[in-house]
Computed example of a mutant assay.
Amino acid sequence: MRSIRKTSALTGSLLVAVTALLTTAGSALADDTPTPSSSSSSSDGSDGADGSGGGPTEAGTSFRTATAFRPGQQATADASTGDYLYWVFPVDTGQRATVTAKVTLPDSAARKGSATWQVDVYDGLRRHQPCVYGARTRAVAADADTLELRCTLRTVRAWAEPWSNDPLPGSYYVRLTVVNAQEEDLGLPVRASVGASLSDKGGSVAVGGALAVPLTASAVLADADGDGSDDEPPAAAVASEPEGGWASGWWSDRWIWTAVGGVLGALAGIGGYSLTRPSRVSRRVS
């Protein structure tokens, strides 16, 4: 009986330890994991082009001149039909980004026909990233007033094999343009609005490892457009760093479940042993 009591006491202690581990780990994740709200705006309003905390009011025309914005902001721009519009924003490890774009078209009386618009997203290596959800291309009739596009990317990984096309943490470039329009409609004024939202993922999508440097700087792109000399402009515009900084990459919630699994395995072993071990009383009787 004493053995059973000791086993029950040990089991209870292990259960308390598991509960404490889960509570502590949950608090750590809540404190350390970057959220869309924490990285999407600045309290002093310095991120907005107009100083009001809103998004920028212009767009770049290439990777070099892409306009930076933060997730949660709405970046707007007045442009002409046929222009290539570029923006850039940061995405960190374990986050899944959804890019949305809205185009306000010219008056239908001024347009001659239908048009097809498209939004593309590229990572810090200028690799085109596919959309897992949403409509990145949409055709609109000649009498339409607006159109909306949406592209949800794959979850960003902490690292990837050199041969893979996995999305990595760093800058992500948004390109918006018309891909099919009547020649007479090219040059007509449009107003574009682009935004991005982030959702934190974990569990099955969390992996170990980390990049030495997020794909935001022009180091990997220095020779893409020139000879890399010091007097040349950067190879590409750079997204601003998230307010909480880039993730270190070594931490994953898999550590929690690995520890919990080990403790539960120990509990199962102790419980099974206590149930199958003959008691001292039964051995004395026999």
Score class of each variant (00 low, 15 high):
residue 274 S to L: 03
residue 23 T to W: 14
residue 67 T to Q: 15
residue 224 A to M: 13
residue 151 C to D: 05
residue 161 E to V: 06
residue 145 D to A: 13
residue 244 G to K: 02
residue 42 S to M: 08
residue 151 C to I: 05
residue 156 V to Q: 04
residue 266 A to K: 00
residue 8 S to I: 15
residue 88 V to L: 10
residue 277 R to D: 03
residue 145 D to C: 02
residue 278 P to S: 05
residue 178 V to S: 15
residue 250 W to S: 08
residue 230 D to I: 09
residue 206 A to V: 03
residue 253 D to T: 04
residue 141 A to I: 01
residue 277 R to P: 01
residue 253 D to Y: 02
residue 66 A to V: 08
residue 238 V to E: 15
residue 22 L to A: 14
residue 39 S to D: 13
residue 225 D to Y: 15
residue 171 S to N: 07
residue 132 V to D: 09
residue 283 R to D: 04
residue 113 G to K: 04
residue 47 D to R: 08
residue 66 A to D: 10
residue 115 A to P: 04
residue 13 S to I: 13
residue 92 D to C: 03
residue 214 P to Y: 01
residue 179 V to K: 11
residue 234 P to A: 05
residue 277 R to F: 02
residue 145 D to K: 14
residue 211 L to P: 00
residue 10 L to E: 13
residue 174 V to I: 15
residue 113 G to Y: 04
residue 180 N to W: 05
residue 239 A to Q: 07
residue 195 G to F: 06
residue 223 D to Y: 12
residue 125 L to G: 10
residue 173 Y to I: 09
residue 235 A to C: 06
residue 99 V to T: 14
residue 243 E to W: 03
residue 194 V to R: 12
residue 135 A to Q: 10
residue 193 S to P: 02
residue 218 S to K: 09
residue 21 L to F: 14
residue 97 A to K: 09
residue 269 G to C: 08
residue 117 W to G: 06
residue 50 D to S: 05
residue 279 S to I: 00
residue 74 Q to A: 13
residue 33 T to Y: 11
residue 95 Q to I: 04
residue 40 S to W: 03
residue 133 Y to V: 05
residue 18 V to A: 12
residue 224 A to T: 13
